[in-house]
Design a protein around this nucleic acid. Structure first.
Length: 488
RNA sequence: GGUGGAGUGGCCGAGAGGCGAGGCAGCGGCCUGCAAAGCCGUAUACGUGGGUUCGAAUCCCAUCUCCACCUCCA
């Protein structure tokens, strides 16, 4: 089966056939850096990271562009309110977004272009639209430029709406518009706005409207026709509809597949900046760690609404991650570190010694059926666990375990939740303290072993309790006692 | 009003006509000095009312509730 991908525009899953296979171009709308990243932003980032990783596994060479919109009305407003230049404001939050993406192991984009770096390209595009008679300078001489929705017959195609049913676009005073539903391509500089927030243009100084930056940047880096355009579901209209209208009206083919990630709900409502119900990335990462958070955000199907429960969601994911981690750790130990070095998505999964189980591939090929894929992951892990327990393979035949452990590791890497990945490994730097701690714990474990030898279980349990109080958890196994340091 | 989506067991979350995905939690068992981990077993689940069918969570009709978008949003 070939990879089937749901396209928002055609409303069906279609076989994914890239324009120039094995090259694949993906453009994802990143953030408008007005404020701190919340879980909704991260959910979308994780969804497209999964898509990208699966395409990489399938052998495609993916060019992944994720833009940063670093100029808009709200950035100007909020930076003024916070008392610093808009560019510092934008940059500040841009860094927070990147920090959050990095923490969750979201692969870095091939390039992350900024809107303000592409003013020239936007002006060129607007000029093309004016030449074609589909955009016009504001009638009131304000210096704005608008897109004439009624002059583009396909307007509304992406979201299947009729122009007549649409409300006016309030992004500019209606005085300069031919039709209230026209939207701004270029916004003239206004009194009181910082001089740094405007650029020269044929229509006078100003700045771009929302939407035009994505038309300009996606086609610049991926070509006038490219494979996948994505973003959160809330961007479908007006943002993506308008992008498509601008680009197609200018003669570009634009996106071939539209992919939208479902929204993250909290308390039954969408998490959003404007509703003020956001759980911010930093605090969620702090609460449970980045890996459980990534697991929570990525475990549901990417198009479904994901309900986030601040009390439960992260806590529930922690034992799952611990189970994954334990299995890999134990496998590595039993296999005497013979488990092959994990292959990484960044390297296109090159050099892998195993493939993913067929059912896993089938699940992922079905419009990224991650929940079904997780089910395969867990049953594979369970098979491996039985081998570890020596139930199925009492001898020294480790081939089967080797294969399973490698598969588990590969599936985890495809989903971006490999606990052994360096981004998720906590900083276990080799400090002198670490060595002291190790010797102390081992002394205590030896003492406890001696006590158990003499059936002095009270003394043995005292030692175990002491360590537990200090955050060291002991586990007795046939091969001896191991310890884990609990993070928090 | 227009356009979509969703209601599944204690919780999360798939599936889209035919052996009750999977995870978390719980319960019973095995293992263990006791635990932990692991393994095995364990569920009156499909908003409501009708209908089609040998068979419906899945199809049809009706109905209730919720969510998103309809020009700030990932």
């Amino acid at each position: 089966m070939t990879f089937q991908l749901y396209d928002t525009q055609t409303r069906e899953a279609r076989a994914f056939e890239p324009l120039n296979a094995p090259a694949v171009g993906i453009y994802v709308c990143g953030a408008t850096v007005q404020g701190a990243p919340h879980l909704g932003h991260l959910r979308t980032a994780v969804a497209f990271d999964q898509l990208r990783r699966w395409l990489l596994y399938r052998g495609y060479r993916v060019t992944f562009i994720r833009n940063v919109t670093d100029i808009d009305d709200k950035i100007l407003e909020r930076s003024a309110a916070e008392g610093r230049p808009w560019w510092e404001h934008a940059s500040h939050y841009d860094r927070q977004f990147n920090a959050a993406y990095d923490a969750l192991g979201v692969l870095r984009p091939s390039y992350d272009p900024r809107a303000t770096g592409h003013i020239t390209e936007m002006i060129e595009l607007i000029e093309r639209l004016i030449e074609r008679g589909i955009a016009y300078p504001a009638l009131d001489g304000s210096g704005d430029v608008y897109f004439s929705a009624a002059d583009f017959p396909e307007y509304g195609a992406l979201t299947h709406q009729r122009l007549d049913d649409m409300a006016p676009a309030p992004d500019a005073p209606p005085a300069g518009k031919r039709d209230p539903r026209d939207f701004a391509l270029w916004k003239a500089a206004k009194d009181g706005e910082p001089a740094t927030a405007s650029w020269p243009a044929p229509w006078g100084r100003g700045r771009p409207g929302w939407h035009i930056e994505c038309s300009a940047m996606s086609t610049k880096y991926l070509g006038t026709t490219f494979d996948i355009h994505g973003g959160g579901l809330d961007l479908r209209f007006p943002h993506h509809e308008n992008e498509q209208a601008q680009s197609r009206a200018a003669g570009d083919g634009f996106a071939r597949y539209w992919v939208h990630a479902g929204l993250l709900n909290i308390g039954g409502e969408k998490m959003s900046k404007s509703l003020g119900n956001s759980v911010f990335a930093a605090e969620a990462i702090d609460e449970a760690g980045p890996l459980p958070l990534r697991y929570v955000l990525g475990a549901a199907h990417y198009r479904s609404v994901l309900d986030y429960d601040p009390e439960e969601s992260l806590a529930r994911a922690v034992p799952v991650i611990e189970r994954l981690e334990r299995f890999l750790r134990e496998s590595r130990r039993v296999l005497d570190d013979e488990l092959p070095a994990p292959v990484r998505a960044e390297e296109g999964f090159a050099g892998r010694e195993v493939d993913v189980p067929e059912e896993f591939a089938a699940a992922m090929d079905n419009d990224l059926g991650v929940p079904a894929a997780l089910s395969v992951l867990f049953s594979t892990l369970s098979e491996g666990q039985k081998l570890l327990d020596g139930r199925e393979s009492p001898g020294q035949e480790f081939g089967a375990l080797f294969r399973i452990a490698a598969q588990v590791q590969l599936m985890l890497e495809i989903l971006g939740i490999d606990p052994t990945h360096p981004v998720f490994a906590s900083d276990r730097t080799e400090t002198p303290q670490a060595g002291v701690l190790e010797r102390l714990v081992e002394e205590l474990i030896a003492g406890r072993a001696a006590a158990r030898e003499h059936k002095d279980f009270a003394a043995a349990d005292d030692i175990r309790d002491l360590l537990a109080r200090s955050g060291v958890e002991l586990t007795d196994t046939p091969a001896g006692t191991r310890y884990t340091i609990k993070e928090r």
